[in-house]
Design a protein around this nucleic acid. Sequence first.
DNA 1: GCGCCGAAAATGTGATCACAAACAAGCCAT
DNA 2: ATGGCTTGTTTGTGATCACATTTTCGGCGC
Lengths: 215, 215
Amino acid sequence: MQAVPKAEIAASAHDRVYRGLRTRIMHGQMAPGQALTLRGIGREFDVSMTPAREAVNRLVAEGALTMSSSGRVSTPELSNERIEELAALRALIEVELASRALPRAHIALIDRLQTINATIADVVSNRDSVGYIRTNLEFHRTLYLRAQAPAMLAMAETVWLQLGPTMRALYGRLRRSEPPQYHRLIIAALKAGDEPGLRLAVRSDVTQGLRMLAG
Amino acid sequence: MQAVPKAEIAASAHDRVYRGLRTRIMHGQMAPGQALTLRGIGREFDVSMTPAREAVNRLVAEGALTMSSSGRVSTPELSNERIEELAALRALIEVELASRALPRAHIALIDRLQTINATIADVVSNRDSVGYIRTNLEFHRTLYLRAQAPAMLAMAETVWLQLGPTMRALYGRLRRSEPPQYHRLIIAALKAGDEPGLRLAVRSDVTQGLRMLAG
DNA sequence: GCGCCGAAAATGTGATCACAAACAAGCCAT
DNA sequence: ATGGCTTGTTTGTGATCACATTTTCGGCGC
């Protein structure tokens, strides 16, 4: 019924729900403005309202969901000012993370980044926008993990989370056909140990997509 | 029993608890490692365990409290690496906020900052460390509110929250007797419209206190 | 004195329930 | 037909409870 009957780590119910909703939002599987109900979430994850409410409250606190004055929750529809602000936050934090990862970026990491980049080319040719968002985030997270800065990475992921539904709306309608050009620049700067070039490449990659939405 | 019997806005119970605990943590009224129980919180705020648990979960999600594997919560005891990281985040975000506030900083704002700064001198002479932390944060928040960047300000406040108990431990034992020198530099740079000077002053003010802790 | 074990108290978790507010749909009057 | 009112349904909120786990503490053996 509760606690942990399993011998394994066995995450709590509210954590399962939280993680499920979180990746769904971050990967752009929900459109902006989409509504959610506690009982519906409970049914879907086979839990009662209590853990569903905990998960939803946590996501609201992180800005991944918005709550109306009557308590109804839905994915946010961001204003252009908010989008610009979040893009600026991405640039600030992720440039710092990349810079801290640079001294520790060995060849194995660069190889992994190139593999992920090839996967991005695949999903782009398949017009799979949620696959694109997920793989793109994996590219960035793989790099930033090397920075050994968990608090900064958590901040960056919170920003990604807030932009999730907006990114879906963005990439869903612009239907790009080529992989992101700046990823190649990032890899090149990593290989060359070029810190200013890396900072510029990351900043460009982060602000590129969002610019056309706010324009 | 629930909902909103009052005619006013009437915040929900979990929000009252959340806000109460939040300011207590952010202002340094709790020592690092201090334990909390749901039933104790419920007794203190006169609510049941449910809203107490919601408030605690939210604070855990924001990094203001840590939860052991058995679910017990306490204020965090940060490692030096984590402190350095959070200080770097403060520097990144707050320098940007100050820079964005600069073009909108009129004389009324500067007057207000000087008033707050005078209050800081008072509480410092009274050896009131929680008053110092609260007024110092008020100084920064007053400036950053002018940046019109709510997402960035929320990020900065989350970092303050995580540093709350540590700041208490820090300022509680170093017993400074003079008001922060860099606040005067911030005000001077605002008056002169000197953006590089402002960035440097804010970065210095933010990293100054934490440096001696990690050293 | 010191360490270990077992019972009792404390604590977190999640299900269930009652209730108020919000929303939706239908109905009537004009 | 349309606007306002009413009723029924949906939804979030918070209290209460049962239960597993953890923690605490007293006592016993060595």
